[in-house]
């Protein structure tokens, strides 16, 4: 087990290095001149442009620049947003907590729906409940998140007491406490994200529960006369919860993508929203800072999922 964890950690370190190389490569898709021009603006003189290139070492060798990039990352410096005139660290420190709030609530809700529903579908396999559940998850999987958001707005925006339409969310949602003070604003973003995550989880939960039901220990439990509800609770549910750990770890890129779209549609000031704004204003430095962070979160999420699975499931020996 210790050997496995060490090997897995080593892999994560290598992948993280790969992530920095890939991000650096993405930044250098843009020629140094146009990158500098983007930042200093069109009215800057040639001297100002040259001064900027010198200051940031954009004319140095690629190795020196890469080392500088890694050195900054190691010091927790994710870059500078020129259009907001703030460091990316500042933007993230203000927005990450909002993402954790939105993503956390949605993730918990989606899991609370997906696990019992998946188990129920597996137990009553091929019944009407199973067919309905499969149908719902097929359709939810096929609906792009932005369309889901738009449809929810159409359905619920009529009733202004219950929820507010996207344009209104922004006024109150700038600060973390502002969001908490107007919890009704969260209903539509959370509903959209919850349904998106549910679409990612539901079919997996169903098939994993079907696999578990076919195991010998379930048959043993039944044949020794254990009441069915105890079979389901002690054996099926507990085993299904193990796969939830893997599922959450592997779904991180999907959840972050859904988050970006939900935040853009509802003007929710999380990391995805800032990423979108940076893309609209062509702020490459900010985009890459956020991309590095998002990729790291994914790597760490996969790492925790793999190790968590090995720790929780004593049958797995590496």
């Amino acid at each position: 087990m210790t050997g496995y964890i060490i090997r897995r950690l080593g892999q994560a370190v290598i992948v993280t290095m790969g992530v920095t190389i890939a991000t650096f490569g993405l930044l250098h898709l843009i020629p140094a001149d146009s990158l500098a021009r983007q930042i200093v603006g069109n009215r800057a003189t040639h001297q100002q442009l040259q001064a900027f290139i010198d200051q940031y070492g954009l004319n140095r060798s690629i190795w020196v620049q890469y080392w500088k990039f890694v050195d900054q990352l190691l010091h927790g410096n994710l870059g500078y947003s020129y259009h907001l005139n703030k460091s990316v660290d500042t933007i993230l420190s203000q927005s990450v907590s909002k993402d954790i709030l939105l993503g956390g609530i949605s993730l918990v809700l989606a899991t609370l729906f997906a696990v019992p529903f998946g188990i129920a579908q597996a137990v009553k396999r091929n019944g009407w409940l199973d067919s309905a559940g499969t149908g719902i998850s097929f359709i939810l999987y096929a609906v792009p998140q932005y369309l889901l958001a738009a449809v929810l707005v159409i359905i619920f925006a009529e009733d202004q007491h219950l929820v507010q339409i996207p344009a209104l969310v922004n006024q109150n949602a700038q600060t973390f406490t502002g969001i908490l003070a107007h919890p009704t604003n969260l209903i539509l973003p959370v509903a959209t994200l919850t349904l998106s995550i549910y679409a990612l989880f539901s079919r997996y939960m169903r098939s994993s529960a079907i696999d578990t039901l076919a195991q010998d220990y379930i048959r043993t439990a039944r044949s020794k006369g254990l009441p069915e509800h105890l079979v389901l609770r002690r054996h099926l549910l507990r085993n299904s919860l193990i796969s939830v750990v893997t599922l959450i770890g592997l779904s991180i890129p999907g959840i972050l993508t859904a988050g970006l779209i939900v935040e853009e549609v509802f003007n929710y000031p999380g990391v995805g929203y800032y990423y979108y704004q940076a893309a609209v204003s062509g702020d490459f430095d900010e985009m890459l800072g956020i991309t590095v962070l998002v990729a790291m979160v994914t790597v760490i999420g996969n790492l925790i999922a793999d190790i968590g699975y090995a720790v929780l499931d004593p049958r797995i020996r590496y």
């Binding site: 890129p253 970006l260 490459f284 890459l288």
Partner: peptide, 20 residues
């Protein structure tokens, strides 16, 4: 490991960057 690196970037983030 190259595949792992690629999978670490959520597709939409990558796409929005390249398209911009």
């Amino acid at each position: 490991r190259i595949v792992d690196v690629g999978l670490a970037f959520p597709i939409i983030f990558l796409f929005v960057y390249i398209s911009s």
